[in-house]
Write a protein that binds this DNA or RNA. Structure first.
Lengths: 135, 135
DNA sequence: GTTAGTACTAACTTTTAGAAAGTACAACCA
DNA sequence: TGGTTGTACTTTCTAAAAGTTAGTACTAAC
């Protein structure tokens, strides 16, 4: 056995996904959701529908290439819905699917918790940076 | 104004953190937590204390370099506690701080939800990959 | 005395991200 | 009439990050 098991089946023939297993597809989707821009796109779309460039302005700092790439991955995984109007110039609306909304809720929970705890993080950094070697 | 505001103060002089703002420190910490290996390290440490190499075996596929780098970032942010025994060979134990445990709970919630919904993700992928152009 | 294991770091290569420009077209302004 | 702006991207090139491999200093086991 050279390779690790990636997806295992249980006694009822159901597939079991495990992010700890190298090569499990759940790891890939997790990376789409929690990537640098994925998490912000998902959180923003939790607020409602956005057009491509509006989303780009909301997700401060993302490049067009990375936003397009990120949205394509999320769309493929069934988390984001893309609706293009065949007008000129083209207008494309992005929104969350029901599955995406569930993910977004959990990401927002993490984001809001983190933003609230950041003072503690900053304090820890100061302790670490000046701390052990500083004495 | 060339640069976006990164951290704003409210009327009580409190600092407000916003992951949507480019350059806000909360974004950096978010990336440590949700990075490819960060999320898995945090989730694993949610199960209990691990030594470096044991953690490496648990987080299938991570290199020594990336695990060390990831743990250092999480330690600096006050999420992970590192305790080294000055023995030979050295033994280093990693565990979560109270702050880290709160983060881990939220990550685990996301992980477990995703693993359960993966069949839906796989179905969406099949629809997308074969779908619109396949007809 | 050879092999394996401890927790890393450093040098090097490969992959990915980011920046900038290109595309095709129309609406706006003068 | 014609230049500018805006749409949603893709392509090309460069910079940064991740991954691979080897090295360290030492011991316990075989």
């Amino acid at each position: 056995m050279e390779d690790q098991a990636t997806i295992a089946g249980d006694e009822h023939g159901q597939i079991i996904f495990d992010v700890f297993a190298r090569g499990c597809p759940s790891r890939e989707t997790m990376e789409h959701i929690t990537s640098r821009w994925g998490i912000l796109a998902m959180a923003a779309l939790g607020e409602g529908t956005y057009r491509f460039n509006a989303l780009r302005r909301r997700v401060d700092g993302v490049s067009e290439k990375m936003l397009a790439q990120t949205l394509q991955a999320l769309e493929r995984d069934g988390l984001v819905h893309r609706e293009a109007q065949a007008t000129i110039p083209p207008k494309v609306e992005y929104s969350l699917t029901p599955l995406g909304r569930e993910a977004s809720r959990r990401l927002l929970d993490l984001i809001e918790w983190l933003e609230g705890e950041m003072p503690q993080v900053m304090a820890a950094r100061e302790r670490q940076d000046g701390g052990p070697t500083g004495g």
